[in-house]
Design a protein around this nucleic acid. Structure first.
Lengths: 165, 165
DNA sequence: GGCGACTGTCTTGACATCGAGATACCTTCG
DNA sequence: CGAAGGTATCTCGATGTCAAGACAGTCGCC
């Protein structure tokens, strides 16, 4: 089946036959798919009264395991936002009672963000919902294809995640 | 090589061994990679004094071919933004002299957005820059792997692009 | 011990995006 | 013809994000 990127690439080949636009076959699909996923996630989370950004922060803390706390800096690297954004997110989540801010006992510059009981419950509930939705989106692919796709994508993400950037 | 999603999945398996989190192997990588690409594009375009959103609109018009014009509605489906956002984008691009707004002769509700000569030049210049950068990011992959990856991604994007949604 | 570079977090101001609704026009069909 | 419903674009207010810089605290090294 054809997608929008096929049309996009065909258009470039017609307009700029001098250029090799093959990289777009991969990376434009990644960008567009991410945008579609964002919309789908926003819809799925709205049933739980959660925004995608709230989910990202709560689940990062949930994954950390007892006592469900991380520094703002650790949250930055997991969520790929800037520090100003994270301060703002923590403020809003704290106001909703889903996280609380504690002083870091070992570094007086530092802060620890800890999940409240309610925050933990919300994270657990919405994760199940997200997985159900993602399974539906991946439904077209066999297990072997999903494994292959994950491996190829890992090769692209690894440099970003490991080299500081 | 390990990436951040490997760590994320391992953490979930430890914290929630009851759940099958395999879908995250694919879709979390897509989302994270898109975010990294966004940052990289922002950096690449800043050399041309262009924002990513400006690039998206200008190149959509460029791809359309002579006379380089599309309706705001057509631009929406290509760029995946809302109509309010597109109005705003066109306003700003028009103020910079990169596009102009013309009345649609066949539908008085409608508008046509046309690339100016300068807009066209900027689109062409920045496309070359983007392709160079993307080639570097894809450098790790063989041609066969890129083809395989594109095909797998197409299976995921096609439903979004073809079924209205 | 204390100077200088570095780190972690927060503050601020600018700005792009979204969602909902308004407006004008078109189309279909009785 | 004219009403009802659909479509294309724009308006407006709220909000989330970023970039740059401020500030407090820490660490390495002479």
């Amino acid at each position: 089946m054809e997608d929008e990127v096929d049309r996009l690439v065909a258009a470039w080949r017609r307009e700029r036959p001098d250029l090799d636009v093959e990289p777009l076959e991969v990376l434009s699909r990644v960008s567009r798919l991410a945008r579609h996923l964002d919309r789908a996630r926003r819809l799925a989370f709205s049933e739980h009264n959660l925004e995608p950004w709230e989910f990202d922060v709560l689940t990062a803390l949930r994954r950390a395991g007892t006592p469900y706390q991380l520094s703002p800096g650790q949250l930055l690297t997991q969520t790929l936002v800037t520090s100003g954004t994270m301060t703002n997110r923590i403020d809003r989540l704290a106001k909703k009672g889903l996280v609380e801010r504690l002083p870091d006992p070992s570094d007086r510059r530092g802060v620890l963000v800890r999940l409240t009981d309610e925050g933990r419950d919300r994270a657990d509930q919405s994760l199940a919902g997200l997985l159900a939705q993602e399974r539906a989106i991946l439904g077209e692919l066999s297990r072997a294809q999903r494994t292959e796709l994950a491996a190829l994508l890992r090769q692209l993400t690894a440099p970003f995640d490991n080299i500081p950037g």
